[in-house]
Design a protein around this nucleic acid. Structure first.
Lengths: 329, 329
DNA sequence: CTGTTAGCGCATTCAT
DNA sequence: ATGAATGCGCTAACAG
């Protein structure tokens, strides 16, 4: 067990006042000789200033709170890596709270983080409620949203409408007319509404006599699998799925029914998850760079911290990954 | 902006001394009337005690440090989810530092966490050096390792030898005699040495005239892909890959060479990553439950925190997932 | 340039 | 049961 050594002790060991040591530590003016003395004692004792005492004085914690709906998903891990890549570089530390996909827990987490004195918060929200808005309004620190957007908050998120738009253009260019869209609940504005709307508007504007059969599912592989029967009922030539995971669930179903992709049906996803490359056939998808998005988000929060006015925005960094699962008809 | 309200303010508002408020907050004895008064003021002001001041006094931070080599991997995200599931429940918060797969950064991170006054640390290590040992020995707090093991530390990790053993038995049972092992550097004791040794010892003990061609690669999909040529040189009937990711890289190569799995070559991985189920063919693998492992690890750290003697151990929670990529010859 | 002093907000003696 | 006083370890005036 290391005895905890304080600034006072190293001060006496170096034969100076503790304020001098403090100055030395905080880029204050200290004479060369004293500095050398202090430096020596510090290195040989391995002294480190007490985190909590320092924070108590200085008011800024160098802590960033992160609220995530869950940790064990592809996008979550990439986002986190992105946040961390720039936060850690700027000497900020990251305090992560998980909401388990529960909206009330998300709110409680934000509250807790504020109370704890973090310098700023990034919230990957599942839905922005009035309560969120009220918290943000009264919060003494900047709060940045991602995942969902709302005009009264500052956010940085994937441009789901644009993603849908790109997909709509692509599917139209392949001459599909009767398609199915395997989407999620409209309670999820980003994925459930925007992504679908982006697709549908574009697709129908290019193919006026096109037909889109919307089928609702959730984010689970297995649920998508179970919707296979319903999808086939409409005899679509292409199925657009709201996420790669959904697409893979359906692909499994099609495999088992011996329906060939893309010969019989074209299939697409959204996300650019790693499995989209290794599935058979590989999956045409819109790939989002979540790590990059995470880094951008962290940068944005930092500039909010520095008092710069920042505006909400959509990240347009996405690419249509045309792979083997789609074909022209 | 919320003005930060202190214990003193609510004390005067309630007409009592701040020590009384403090007692109220910390289960001390307070008369019913005063308690009611204080309670009222607290709820109406939404007062929360200052995190840093409290920590400065009480010495325990309710913070657990986590050191990870990287965040954006399947196992990392599952582990994190596991850590968090039990830590958050016990009112601990999690401070995460990333080492970017660099050993010196890993050590620096551990040091930083100790200095910051966390109550305990979980390190997913990439290699345990003498420096690690020295830190642990002098640390005033418990440090628990996962990922790698060393007799002089406390650890909880996957039993790689057993995993290799299971795979060895399985491959032997399929009558393969000439196999290739696509593994990683022996600098990684867990995956590079133990996993391979577990396989090789078991396989050769069952098939004494068996032949194992070891080919070294790294953890990347692309590198494994590039090793395809070398693997085929030995004309193996089965290829055992040290991770699912490696297996998928090779699978991609085999696809392109039009070599059928499992008809021409059987293929296996380790990990039980989600893609092992959606690849074509689906991949036979040893599946580890990383989330469960993370939860167990967190529990172990907690009991170390409570001063209980805990011993290093291997987690034997794994299952052979026999899927489509292997066959008997 | 440096030492002395005064809090930051809280928990905890110690009296009462 | 409660109030007054002390100090956790540190930074930031303030004199010198």
């Amino acid at each position: 067990m290391n005895k905890k050594i304080t600034i006072q002790e190293i001060a006496t060991m170096a034969g100076v006042a503790k304020s001098t040591v403090s100055r030395y530590l905080n880029n204050g003016y200290v004479s060369k000789e004293k500095a050398a003395l202090i430096d020596k004692v510090i290195t040989q004792t391995g002294y480190k200033s007490n985190f909590f005492a320092r924070r108590l004085k200085t008011k800024n914690s160098k802590l960033i709170g992160i609220v995530m709906p869950r940790l064990d998903s592809f996008s979550a891990s990439k986002l986190l890596a992105g946040f961390n890549s720039i936060l850690q570089k700027e000497d900020y530390q990251v305090l992560i709270l998980v909401s388990d996909l529960q909206i009330d827990k998300e709110i409680a987490n934000i509250r807790q983080l504020i109370q704890q004195g973090v310098d700023g918060i990034i919230v990957q929200s599942i839905a922005i409620t009035k309560e969120h808005l009220s918290i943000v309004k009264n919060a003494p620190i900047p709060i940045l949203f991602t995942g969902q957007s709302h005009p009264d908050t500052t956010y940085l998120k994937v441009n789901d409408i644009k993603a849908g738009h790109i997909m709509g253009e692509y599917i139209a260019s392949l001459n599909h007319k009767n398609v199915a869209y395997l989407g999620v609940s409209p309670l999820d504005i980003a994925v459930g509404v925007d992504r679908y709307k982006g697709f549908a508007d574009t697709f129908l504007s290019i193919i006026p006599d096109g037909k889109i059969h919307f089928i609702e599912t959730d984010f689970n592989f297995d649920t998508a699998y179970k919707k296979g029967n319903e999808v086939l009922f409409y005899k679509p030539t292409a199925v657009i799925c709201a996420t790669d995971n959904i697409a893979l669930g359906l692909l499994r179903y099609l495999h088992e029914k011996n329906i060939k992709v893309p010969q019989d049906i074209s299939l697409t996803g959204f996300g650019g998850y790693p499995y989209s490359k290794v599935s058979y056939p590989s999956l045409t998808t819109i790939s989002f760079d979540y790590k990059y998005l995470g880094a951008k988000t962290a940068e944005k929060l930092l500039s909010m911290l520095h008092g710069n006015a920042v505006q909400s925005e959509f990240d347009n960094n996405m690419v249509l990954l045309t792979q083997e699962s789609t074909r022209k008809i």
